[in-house]
Amino acid sequence: MFRSCLQQSRLKTALPGFSRNIGSVILPEEPFVLGVSHITPRSVPQHILRPRYAGGSPTVPQDVDGKVQLGGDAERRLRAAATLARNTREFAGTLVKTHVTTNEIDTAVHEYIIAHSAYPSPLLYSGFPRSCCTSVNNILAHGIPDDRPLEDGDMVCVDVTVYLDGYHGDTAQTFLVGNVDEPGRELAKVTNAALEAGIAACGPGRHFSEIGRAIHNLIRDTDFCISPHFTGHGIGTAFHRKPWIYHDLNDEPEVMRPGHCFTIEPCIIEGKTPTCWIFPDGWTASTEDCARSAQAEHMVLITESGYKVLTR
Rank of each mutant, 00 (worst) to 15 (best):
I235C: 10
I219P: 05
R77S: 11
A294F: 02
G17I: 05
R206A: 13
V109W: 08
A188C: 12
P120Q: 05
E288G: 10
K272S: 13
L310P: 04
H260P: 00
G143S: 11
H298K: 09
L140E: 14
P149T: 05
L70M: 10
T107F: 07
P45Y: 09
T134C: 15
V156W: 06
R3E: 14
F2Q: 06
P228N: 08
T88N: 05
L301P: 00
S286Y: 13
T174R: 10
Y125S: 11
S126F: 12
M299V: 10
P58M: 07
E151V: 09
M256Q: 14
G127L: 13
G205P: 02
K272P: 00
L176N: 01
Y119Q: 06
K242C: 08
A296K: 06
K189T: 13
S305R: 15
A118I: 06
P122F: 08
L164I: 01
P16C: 06
G198V: 01
I269L: 11
I22C: 10
Y119H: 07
I26H: 01
E254W: 11
V33W: 00
G153C: 05
C276D: 05
H216D: 14
I139Q: 11
T191N: 00
L195I: 01
P274F: 06
D170R: 10
I245D: 06
A172W: 03
I22W: 06
P204G: 06
F262P: 03
I268W: 06
D289H: 15
P120L: 08
A194R: 07
D223F: 03
H247T: 07
R292D: 04
E270R: 14
G55T: 11
P61I: 09
V96F: 09
F208H: 12
A285M: 13
G234L: 04
I268S: 07
N250H: 13
F91Y: 15
T171G: 01
V180N: 01
F175C: 02
V255E: 09
K308H: 08
R3S: 12
T102V: 06
A238G: 03
D63F: 13
L124Q: 15
P145L: 10
F224V: 03
V25Y: 00
V309H: 03
S286G: 01
C133A: 15
Y125N: 15
I114C: 10
I211M: 08
G232C: 07
I139A: 03
V136A: 01
T101R: 12
A285R: 13
T98M: 14
K67Q: 15
L150V: 07
P16N: 02
E270N: 10
S227M: 09
T273W: 02
C261S: 11
E30S: 11
L187A: 05
Y246V: 14
H168A: 14
D223T: 12
A82E: 05
R213G: 01
Q173S: 11
D165I: 08
P183I: 03
G184N: 02
T303S: 10
A296G: 07
V25D: 00
A82P: 07
D181Q: 12
P51Y: 06
R20C: 02
V309P: 04
A197N: 03
I113E: 03
D251A: 10
Q62S: 12
